[in-house]
Design a protein around this nucleic acid. Structure first.
Length: 721
RNA sequence: GGCGAAGUAGCUCAGUUGGUUAGAGCGUACGACUCAUAAUCGUAAGGUCGCGAGUUCAACUCUCGCCUUCGCUACCA
């Protein structure tokens, strides 16, 4: 009896519109596997849902002036539409805002609570009375209790890497205002992961071997555990979430990381209220395959299994984890805010058959390392690797057969073709094996190899000659090629479902599943419809036009990281360091008082300690970026930035002996920028000030002061910052 | 600066526990064929497997250092 296969893809966060990278990482990969499993005769269930709770949704709702629920309705529909367009064969696509989700989450919580694994730390949490807010862990700093490092954050120590709770810190300080926070009583609940450690590690050892986890899943999980398993808080002070069913916690909700994975279960319950337990309470008979991108690994290998194991119920646990790396876009990251890359919502208007997208993404699935989408690659992969190979083989075989032999298909298995057909069967078996191991990309490559085998056989057999000399033998060759196309079509069905049906349709067949490979009896006497072109090839011109549209060039046009535009907002003044001392709280920083010719000297913080002694800097006239937004550096506000030339690991702070204090730098041929509004650091760097041949310049145009061009002494070439 | 991942043919990627001349597809060149969507088939060129040491009889594979890229993060500002 074959085990059932329960397949999930990571729950997409509801108000992120998925891009191609998201789609190949989770939903599409899982879809191929689910389709494979069904076709191979496994009882299969493929579940997904939108993850809807949490701060991000609350914020988005505020922005758009809607309720969280309305936001979720809106974005859930967008997800649904995109996945439908992609032909994703969910058995059920749910939502964590469904009532079942509250039931299941609360039930698991109650089980954990009964098992004594919920620590009701009626903790006092750090609360800043000055800022009147509870401080998130990382906003508290202090001395690490493990290594004594003074700059440890409340969630983790950067020196020793240990995970911390803010209350463990000695001498805690609010990172916002620098005042010591008080401890204010607030009750939160924690999942007692340390108590589950031995059961977890037993699960890891078993499952990672049996389920053949990918390399990145194993290393990531190990790394996570080595860093130390701590009790993790599972409640938060929010409104939009699953209410905590426990006295004293009614006004809190569960932390999303706790409830989101439970969405797999609750979605199954929403879709299959009567049979969901057959899947989720059946570890013996059901194998759980979970698909996700690499950033989601620890939640599926540690946190979620811990919740289920700890509940004491007989849950179905993770069997195989299929974690992909990232897909980049033309060498960079996808970015919704910068309109960089292709998003699910863009696809329809591009009007490229969806199976071609599926083909490209699956053929370039980032299995071992990050991979890269490029339009040139897209064009080549579609045209050369798919259409020229498979599309053309289908066409040449069918056209040749029908032109010469008409109808119906003469279906007996010709003895002369057994050798060739064995090769076909062997490739088919290889492809099936790869698919079963979730080697999705290699499976597809094997199918293409089958196409190449067919093309080669056609060519080597020279049927255009044979038709004159030995029509009967030639017919056998063509029939064998049609058999190949049949298996190829069946094998392609998980990858390109619509295309597979079209291929099979042209053979007068229907999709029969992958168990029928090598069984060609149904082809005997089949009526063949007139051959049609499977896909027109993509035109380079058309693809090139998409390049401009999505390659972020519009970013250049619209936002323009034009250095000169940025420079127009930057003010650089000459200042004299009149006082300098080490930063009391930092190893690498100085705190300086700098006279910029203003009413008051300014306080600046600079990371120059590793390069200069205080004496060397005292009295120097230096360049200061003077209209930067003040920044808090370890408790001291820095009102500007001392500029230095940087090359590799060398640094030079130019000493401008001849300059006047308060003088403003200008671009040659222009007047100085004065009295400008505050800018972000990013804007400053967008001006891309550099040093070349000792000259300060922007894109080749020099910077000057009244006495002459700005020059460096020690470092001839480098960046200024 | 810290942590993590990565660096293999022009491009996209494979390379299992170290073991003969490092692979595939695409692209390129040349040739063949002509049934087919100028598709197909063959041959070839093309890599000091980021750089430098070390361990070993033997290193793309192990160790150390360095360089570069990407991500996260910070006492970069």
């Amino acid at each position: 009896m074959k085990k059932k296969r329960l397949i999930t893809s990571a729950l997409p966060y509801v108000n992120n519109v998925p891009h191609l990278g998201n789609i190949i990482g989770c939903v599409l990969s899982a879809d191929v596997y689910a389709r494979y499993c069904r076709a191979a005769g496994y009882e299969t269930l493929y579940i997904c849902a939108t993850d809807e709770y949490g701060t991000a949704t609350e914020n988005k709702a505020r922005e758009e002036g809607l309720s969280p629920k309305e936001i979720c309705d809106k974005y859930h529909a967008i997800h649904q539409e995109i996945y439908q367009y992609f032909n994703i064969s969910f058995d059920f696509f749910g939502r964590t805002s469904h009532p079942e989700h509250i039931e299941v989450t609360q039930a698991i919580f109650s089980d954990l609570d009964k098992a004594g694994l919920v620590l009701e730390q009626e903790t006092e949490q750090t609360y800043c009375e000055v800022d009147q807010m509870f401080l998130a862990d990382r906003y508290v700093e202090g001395t690490c209790p493990h290594c004594g490092y003074e700059g440890a954050r409340g969630d983790q120590c950067d020196r020793c890497g240990k995970l911390l709770q803010p209350t463990e810190l000695k001498n805690p300080k609010c990172q916002v205002c620098g005042n010591p926070p008080v401890l204010k009583k607030t009750k939160h609940l924690y999942l007692d992961l340390p108590s589950l450690e031995s059961r977890l590690s037993e699960f890891h050892q078993r499952s990672s071997i049996q389920g053949k986890w990918a390399h990145n899943a194993i290393t990531t999980t190990q790394g996570w555990i080595e860093r130390g398993i701590q009790p993790r808080p599972i409640t938060r002070d929010l409104k939009w979430g699953v209410p905590v069913p426990k006295a004293g916690f009614q006004n809190k909700v569960f932390y999303v990381w706790f409830d989101a994975p439970i969405g797999y279960i609750s979605a199954t319950k929403s879709g299959y209220p009567d049979t969901w337990k057959d899947w989720w309470f059946d570890p013996e008979g059901t194998q759980l395959y979970q698909f996700m991108a690499k950033d989601n690994i620890p939640f599926h290998t540690v946190v979620f299994p811990a919740s289920l194991i700890g509940s004491g119920q007989n849950w179905t646990l993770l069997h195989h984890i299929a974690s992909t790396e990232y897909l980049n876009y033309e060498g960079g990251k996808f970015s919704k805010s910068r309109s960089l890359g292709i998003f699910g919502t863009d696809l329809k208007e591009l009007d490229i058959p969806i199976d071609l997208w599926r083909f490209y993404l699956l053929f370039n699935r980032p299995e071992r390392s990050d991979s890269n989408f490029s339009w040139d690659g897209f064009l080549e992969d579609i045209n050369s690797n798919f259409i020229d190979n498979i599309g053309n083989l289908l066409n040449r075989v069918l056209v040749f057969y029908q032109k010469n032999y008409g109808q119906p298909l003469d279906g007996a298995i010709p003895a002369s073709q057994v050798g060739f057909l064995d090769q076909v069967k062997e490739l088919g078996a290889t492809a099936l094996g790869l698919m079963d191991q979730v080697q999705i990309k290699d499976g597809l490559k094997t199918i293409l190899a089958m196409g190449r085998l067919g093309n080669k056989y056609f060519h080597d057999s020279e049927p255009w000659k044979g038709i004159k000399e030995d029509p009967e033998k030639t017919k056998e060759i063509l029939v064998a090629l049609i058999y190949l196309l049949h298996d190829l079509g069946q094998l392609l069905s998980p990858y390109m479902p619509q295309t597979a049906e079209e291929i099979l349709g042209m053979l007068g067949q229907k999709k029969r599943g992958l168990t029928g490979l090598g069984d060609w009896s149904s082809l005997a006497g089949a009526q063949l419809p007139a051959p049609a072109i499977l896909f027109q090839k993509l035109e380079k011109k058309r693809i090139d036009s998409f390049k401009d549209r999505f390659s972020g060039k519009r970013e250049l046009v619209e936002e323009g990281p034009d250095p000169f535009a940025a420079w127009a907002k930057v003010e650089i003044k000459v200042g004299k360091i009149i006082h300098i001392e080490p930063h009391p709280e930092a190893d690498r920083l100085y705190v300086e008082k700098i006279d910029l010719g203003e009413d008051q000297p300014r306080t600046l913080v600079s990371g120059l300690k590793a390069y200069y002694s205080a004496e060397e800097l005292l009295g120097r006239k230096v360049l200061v970026a003077s209209n930067l937004k003040p920044a808090l550096l370890r408790g001291v506000w820095s009102q500007g930035m001392v500029l230095a030339v940087e090359k590799r690991k060398r640094l030079e702070v130019v000493d401008l002996k001849e300059a006047e204090i308060g003088e403003v730098a200008f671009l040659e041929g222009e007047s100085p920028n004065r009295a400008l509004p505050e800018i972000e650091l990013d804007t400053f760097f967008a001006a891309q000030i550099r040093v070349k041949d000792h000259r300060f310049e922007i894109e080749g145009r020099g910077l000057s002061l009244a006495f002459g061009p700005l020059k460096s002494v020690e470092i001839s070439e480098g960046k200024v910052g």
